[in-house]
Design a binder for these strands. Structure first.
Length: 411
DNA sequence: CATCCACAGGAAACGCTGGGCA
DNA sequence: TGCCCAGCGTTTCCTGTGGATG
C-alpha cells in the first residue's frame, strides 16, 4: 500500500465554481438584461447611444451581464456592414483617480494596436486626456468603454465628464464613445459632481441583491456540472443559497461557499457533501477573510492592533482611544519604530473596524468625560497573536501579550 | 435648557517618490 | 539639469457632535 492513494472525487469539473466562469445563460436577471439590451440597441441601428450605468453590490451579476451583452453585441454587429464597433474593458479595481483610469484606457487601446504603453506617471492630466482622444479617434464607429468598479475613483470624476463630451467638444471626430460604468456603490451616483450626473445617469440599471430562491436557481446548474451525480445532499445548495442571501445576496459568495463545502468534503474523503460541510465552509471563509485582513495591515496597522491586543490580554477592554494611543506609542518605542499621530491612529482603527477586526462603541459622558470611542477586538486574541508572531518585528510584543493573556486565563 | 467636555473625523497641506520634457 | 506632473501616507488645523450637568 503506497503513501498516496487517490481520494474519492466529489468534483466532476470544478470550473463552473470558479470566479472567472462565464455561464452561457444568465439567470434571474431577465428584466435587467432586457433594459440593457434596449440601451445598447441604438448601436446596431447606428443611432446616438446614451451612456449606461449599472449599480448593485458585488456579486449581483453586473459584470457577468456586461460580458454577456457585449459578446452578443460584437457578434451581431458583424452582420451589418455599416456598423463599426469596438469595445474596451478597464477594471478600475486598483485605480483611484480619473488620471489613472485615463492612462490605463490609453494603454489598453494602444495594446490592441500593438503600440507601446505610456508611463503611468509624469504627464499632466490634460496631456493624458489628449493622448486618449487621439487614440480613440483612430478607431471608427462606436467604441464601447466599460469602466468596471468605477466607484474606486471616488470624487476624482473628470474622466466621466470629459469622455462623454469628447465628440460634442470636438476633441474627437470619427468616433462615438459610449460609456458603460459599473459601480458597486449606490452612493457613488450621489457623490458625482452635478455636471457629470446628468450625462451619465442617462440610462441606469439597478441590480438588486439576490434572494435565496434566485441564488438556488443560479447554483443548481453549476452544481450539477461541478459535482458528480448524487454527491450533493439535497440540503446543500439551499443552505448555501440561504447563507449568502442572508448575508450579502451575492452570487459570488454563494458559489464560493458551495466550492469550499465541496473541498472540505473532498478533504474528508467522504462520498457526500453535507449540510455540516456548508456550515464549516461558512466558518472557514469568514475566518480566512479576517485572517487575510490582519495580515495585509501595514506595520503601523500591526502596531495599533498589537496595542489593542495587549489591552485585551490584560482584560482592560473596551479601551478608549486615548489610552490605546499611549499603549501604541510605548510599543513603537520598544520596537524602535516611529510613531504616527493620534489622528492617523484613528484612521487605522477605522480601517480595522471596516474589516470587521475590531468593535467600536460610542460613549458620551457629557461634560464630565465628553465624547469618545472605545475599542475591543472582534476576533479571537489567539488569531491576532498568530498573525503578530508570524510578522517580522512583532514576535517580542506578541510573546509578552501571550504571557499576559496566560496569566489572566484569556486564551 | 444652555453649556461644555473630549474626542471624531473633514480639509488642507506637506514631503517624498517616480516619471516626463526642454 | 532643473522644473513640471500626480499620488501616497502623513501631519496640522479645525469644526462638529450629543448627552450629563449645573
Amino acid at each position: 500500500m503506497g503513501m498516496f492513494q487517490r481520494d474519492r472525487q466529489v468534483f466532476a469539473d470544478a470550473e463552473p465554481l470558479d470566479d472567472s466562469y462565464e455561464p452561457e445563460d444568465i439567470r434571474e436577471r431577465d428584466e435587467e438584461l432586457e433594459k440593457y439590451k434596449r440601451a445598447l440597441q441604438p448601436i446596431i441601428d447606428n443611432r446616438p447611444t446614451s451612456n449606461i450605468f449599472l449599480y448593485g453590490k458585488t456579486g449581483t451579476g453586473k459584470t457577468v451581464a456586461t460580458k454577456f451583452m457585449l459578446s452578443h453585441l460584437e457578434n451581431d454587429a458583424t452582420e451589418y456592414d455599416d456598423v463599426e464597433l469596438s469595445t474596451v474593458w478597464v477594471s478600475c479595481e486598483n485605480l483611484s483617480s480619473s488620471y489613472q483610469v485615463a492612462v490605463t484606457l490609453v494603454n489598453e487601446l494602444r495594446e490592441s494596436k500593438g503600440k507601446d504603453r505610456i508611463s503611468t506617471t509624469g504627464y499632466s492630466q490634460q496631456r493624458v486626456f489628449d493622448i486618449l482622444y487621439e487614440e480613440l479617434d483612430e478607431f471608427g464607429g462606436t467604441v464601447v468603454i466599460v469602466l468596471d468598479e468605477i466607484d474606486n475613483i471616488g470624487h476624482s470624476d473628470d474622466i466621466l465628464y470629459g469622455l462623454p463630451r469628447a465628440r460634442s467638444n470636438g476633441y474627437v471626430e470619427d468616433v462615438r464613445p459610449v460609456i458603460v460604468g459599473i459601480s458597486n456603490d449606490f452612493q457613488f451616483r450621489e457623490n458625482l459632481s452635478p455636471k457629470v450626473k446628468d450625462t451619465l445617469a442617462e440610462k441606469e440599471i439597478l441590480f438588486p441583491p439576490y434572494d435565496a430562491n434566485q441564488l438556488r436557481s443560479i447554483l443548481n446548474p453549476r452544481a450539477e456540472k461541478a459535482f458528480h451525480d448524487d454527491v450533493l445532499n439535497d440540503d446543500v445548495v439551499p443552505l448555501c443559497a440561504a447563507f449568502a442571501a442572508q448575508d450579502t445576496g451575492s452570487a459570488r459568495q454563494a458559489i464560493r461557499l458551495l466550492r469550499e463545502a465541496g473541498e472540505l468534503a473532498q478533504a474528508d474523503d467522504t462520498e457526500a457533501v453535507t449540510e455540516d460541510h456548508v456550515r464549516d465552509a461558512q466558518d472557514e471563509l469568514e475566518k480566512n477573510q479576517l485572517y487575510e485582513g490582519m495580515q495585509e495591515l501595514t506595520t503601523q496597522g500591526h502596531a495599533v492592533l498589537c496595542a489593542l491586543a495587549y489591552h485585551q490580554a490584560i482584560g482592560e477592554v473596551p479601551v478608549r482611544s486615548r489610552d490605546l494611543y499611549q499603549r501604541y506609542v510605548k510599543i513603537c518605542e520598544r520596537l524602535d519604530a516611529d510613531n504616527v499621530s493620534e489622528r492617523r491612529v484613528r484612521d487605522h482603527l477605522s480601517d480595522m473596524n471596516m474589516l470587521g477586526l475590531i468593535s467600536v462603541y460610542e460613549r458620551n459622558e457629557g461634560l464630565s468625560a465628553g465624547r469618545y470611542h472605545e475599542y475591543e477586538l472582534n476576533v479571537p486574541l489567539k488569531a491576532v497573536l498568530e498573525v503578530l508572531l508570524s510578522t517580522n518585528r512583532f514576535e517580542e510584543p506578541a510573546n509578552i501579550i501571550q504571557s499576559a493573556a496566560d496569566d489572566n486565563n484569556l486564551l
